[in-house]
Amino acid sequence: GCFECYYNRPKKKFGYDCADLARLAAESRFNVNEVEALYELFKKLSCSIIDDGLIHKEELQLALLQTPSGENLFLDRVFDLFDEKQNGVIEFEEFIHALNIFHPYAPIEDKIDFAFRLYDLRQTGFIEREEVKQMVIAILIESEMRLSDELVEEIIDKTFADADADGDGKIDKKDWKEFVIRHPSLLKNMTLPYLKDITTAFPSFVFNTQVED
């Protein structure tokens, strides 16, 4: 059963009860204890700047880039995909849904799909050449790498020659799937090995657990 619900104590602040946690576990690859451990992580992230139980973009940015300010195209895309409701904040449920895709045992199809949506900047259903160029320029700036425009064009040409199987100048879902299956390393960042033993990474959940073994 459910003894005094830790999650209900700051009632409206977070407001997840046992049933919610069980539902989140049922909807994901995480068991209830793992959902609770992820809740510890979520709490840490969601109070790093604004203590309101929601992850704001600045908080995600602080965690990933170690700075809350500045522009990062990729961070923006990740945030947008996590923010299912598109209301500018990541709720715990959304956090679980997204991390579920990064689980080592999540279906590869889900990872392929998520990566496609990430790179389809304008959400047209295609990864277009212009988007790829924009992303390449962004990563070069981020990593303070300097490449001539000529070389950038060459890299993109080569990538499209490989990825754009039907030769229509843009990468559709089918092209993308075949491409990443040929280059599985491109999905490496779509898997977080930590998620396999998240309860070890966040053992403090044990003190807060609502669920007895």
Partner: peptide, 25 residues
């Protein structure tokens, strides 16, 4: 001349895409 990298290989190096950093202390 070295073969240029795949564009997506470059892109996937972004810190913004590496969620493993969420678990860093």
């Amino acid at each position: 001349q070295p073969t240029p990298m795949n564009a997506f290989e470059l892109i996937s190096m972004s810190k913004g895409l590496n969620l493993g950093n969420l678990f860093d202390e």
